[in-house]
Amino acid sequence: MIAKSARSWVWLLYIALAVYAFITFIPFAWALSASFKSLPEISSGGTNFIPKAFTLDNYKTIFLQEPLFGRWLINSIIIAVTVTLFNLLFNSMAGYALARITFPGKQFLFFLVLAVLVVPGQITLLPKFLILKSLGWLNSYQGLIAPAIVNATFIFMMRQFFLNFPKELEEAAALDGLNRFETFFQVVMPLAKPALAAQTIFIFMGSWNEFLLPLVVMSNPEMFTLPLGLNAFKGQYVTYWNYIMAASMIFTLPALAIYAFFNRYFIQGVTFTGGKG
C-alpha cells in the first residue's frame, strides 16, 4: 500500500514539473514559431505552433534589411567578452589580496568593497554618464567596458573562496622561490576554476543582457549593443512581429550556449552569490 501511494506521489510530482516546464517553454516556442512564419500568417492570428508555410525569410531579411544587425552582434560580443575577461582577472586579484596578503589599509579596503556592495548599479547611472561624457567616452567601447571591469560582489565572492584555499600550496610555491604574482598566476588561479566558471556565467550574462547603461552611453546606432538594437528594431518594424521574433531568437542563442556549457557551475555560483556571509 505504502509503495503504491509513494508511486502516485511521484506521478503527481512529475505532472507538476511537466506543467511548469510547459509554462516555461511555451513563450519561447511561440516566439520561435513566429520567427519561421510569414507576416500574413502572423497577422491572421492563428494559434498553430507549426508554421503553415515554413520560411527562413525573416532571418535573411534581418541581416539584409538591417545592415547594422551584424555590427550590434559584434559590439555585444566584444563588450561582454572583454568585460568578462577583465572581471575574472581583477576580481580574483583583489579577492586574493584581501584574503591572503597582509598589508596596511587592508581592513579599510575590505570595508570599502562591502560598502560598495550595497550600492545598486542603477543609482550610479547619471553620474557615470557625466563622467564618461567628460572623459569623451560616450559612444565608445571603453565607455561601457571600463565601468564594468570590476565587480564588488565577485571580489567578495573570490575573497571567500580564497579564504578556504589550502595554505600549503602557497607555502610550497614560496619555497620554490615564486613571488606573489607568480604564485597567483601559476598556482592559485588554475585551481580556482570552479569559482571562475561561476563568475564567467554571471558576468557574461549580466553584460550581455544589460540595457540601461548602454541606453545612455551608446546613442549612436553603430555602437548599439544587441538589446538596444532589438529595442530600436521594434521601433522600426512595429508591425513585423515575424522579424522581431527572429531577431530575438538570434539574440538568445549565444547566452544560451554559454549557459549550456557552464551549466554545472551554475548552482555553485548561486551558492557563492547567495549571500552566505
Binding site: 554618464f129 561624457k133 569623451g136 560616450l138 559612444n139 545612455v216 546613442s219 549612436n220 546606432p221 529595442n231 530600436a232 528594431f233 521594434k234 521601433g235 522600426q236
Partner: peptide, 17 residues
C-alpha cells in the same frame, strides 16, 4: 534612429556627441 528619437537626440546633445 527609430525608437525614442528625441530622447536619443537630447542624450547626445548633452553628451556632446
Amino acid at each position: 534612429i527609430n525608437s525614442q528619437y528625441m530622447d536619443v537626440i537630447k542624450t547626445r546633445l548633452i553628451g556632446d556627441v
